[in-house]
Simulated scan of single mutants.
Amino acid sequence: MELKDLGYNEKTEKSRVQQNLTDYEAGRVIAEHRERYIVRTAQGETEAEITGNLRYSAKSREDFPAVGDWVALIMYDNNTALIHQIIPRTSAITRKAAGHTGEVQIIAANVDTALLIQAVDRDFNINRLERYLTLCYAARVSPVIILTKTDLITEERISAITDAIRQRIPDVPVIAVSSITGNGYDALNSIMEKGKTYCMLGSSGAGKSTLLNFLSGREVMHTGDISQSTGKGRHTTSHRELLVLDNGSILIDNPGMREVGIADTASGLETTFDTLLSLAQHCRFKNCTHTNEDGCAVLEAVENGTLDESLLGNYLKLEREKAWFETSQAEKKRKEKIFGKILKDYQKKDIKGKKI
């Protein structure tokens, strides 16, 4: 397999040259297991770890390799390697790391298109779709909405869901598919281009593994049933993994996400809610919160029915999350700065505490 079959292109080569990495082997991270990586090169797959220098210089999770990354490798004879450096990313889909204040987690790197997967029977939620859209737009990744399990509802219900999406999210393609009937897969296959990288985003039980199996023509991932007690899907994908499909397109599968935390996504919110923010330019006050102000053009649009009230509610919720994340991140940086000063002062003293 050649590097171009993994998505290597002129832009990646240019970055590699600019970073003076041409003396290293180039490879793409196809899986990660607790900071141990599987990297695919032109010669095949190899296990890899990061160098101590890369680990030491990393300031956050974003500085570690992620699935989809192109990396510069030092190869060894026993089919192992050291990752010397990450070749600069063209895109990175990120979210707020679960349980880590102010931390960002990379979902997938160097993605061209994100497939936003939602099952129409239990999982469908436009608010969640807008969360995924915000992550995509912040990463400058094109989104496509995929509705799965359409054989479980009527054609009328499918049409109603599709119309509701297009009314609220007008400029994003929507494809409805069924792994039972095969409906919609021709349309989906038609957008999957050779050499392009796609990433599946969706909650557990949305049908991502079934979708992957159908696209690949074989059982790549095991599928699970919906829990009868909770109505939620069981996790059938336990880790992120990059696969090359038979048609030459590249697909990154992800574990189901029950928490889609908003991180540094100001540009993402602006694009997702561009209709609302266009109205906001006509508000009486520049710092209008769109909650109770007189002369608020957004509230007026909600009252006269030209703007969906639930869209406004979702926007305000995501804005609060973004503000909270930015505050947490600023506090984290403040504490790191204080600690750095303490460490610097300590290093200037000898063992007895006297300044050198």
Rank of each mutant, 00 (worst) to 15 (best):
E219T: 15
E300C: 09
Q329D: 05
K344Y: 10
S60T: 13
D253P: 14
V144F: 07
E193N: 15
K352T: 02
V172F: 02
L307Q: 04
N53P: 00
T237I: 09
T22N: 03
Q329W: 03
L129E: 00
I342E: 14
R131G: 03
V111Q: 11
D77K: 09
Q105K: 11
A266V: 10
T41K: 05
K317Y: 09
A58E: 04
I342W: 14
L277Q: 08
M200V: 11
D350M: 04
P173F: 06
G256D: 13
I175S: 05
R140L: 10
R28T: 00
A176S: 14
A164M: 03
E32W: 00
L251I: 06
N292C: 09
K4Q: 07
K208M: 06
G217I: 11
M257N: 05
K335F: 12
D246F: 09
A114F: 03
K355A: 01
D186R: 06
I106V: 15
K4E: 07
N78W: 13
H239F: 12
K354T: 00
K352G: 11
G248W: 11
G7Q: 04
C296S: 02
T134G: 08
Y8C: 01
I38K: 14
G305N: 08
T12K: 08
A58L: 12
A187V: 15
L343S: 10
G202Q: 04
L82D: 15
R218C: 01
D123E: 09
V244F: 02
Q43A: 13
N213F: 06
Y346Q: 12
E319N: 14
F64G: 12
V39Y: 02
K4H: 06
A98T: 09
R166Y: 07
R218E: 03
L311K: 01
G295L: 10
E13G: 06
F214E: 07
C296D: 03
I356H: 15
L242T: 12
F325L: 06
N20I: 05
K59L: 14
C283E: 07
E259P: 14
V111W: 06
Q329E: 09
V302R: 01
D274S: 07
T94C: 13
K208W: 08
A323P: 05
G102A: 09
T22C: 01
V172T: 10
L269E: 01
L115W: 04
I30R: 01
E2G: 15
Y76S: 06
N183M: 12
A26F: 08
D308W: 04
E32F: 02
G340K: 02
K317N: 07
D171F: 01
I86S: 13
L245C: 14
D246T: 10
I107D: 08
R61W: 08
K349I: 01
T80E: 12
L307D: 00
A81I: 15
M75A: 02
S142T: 07
Q228L: 15
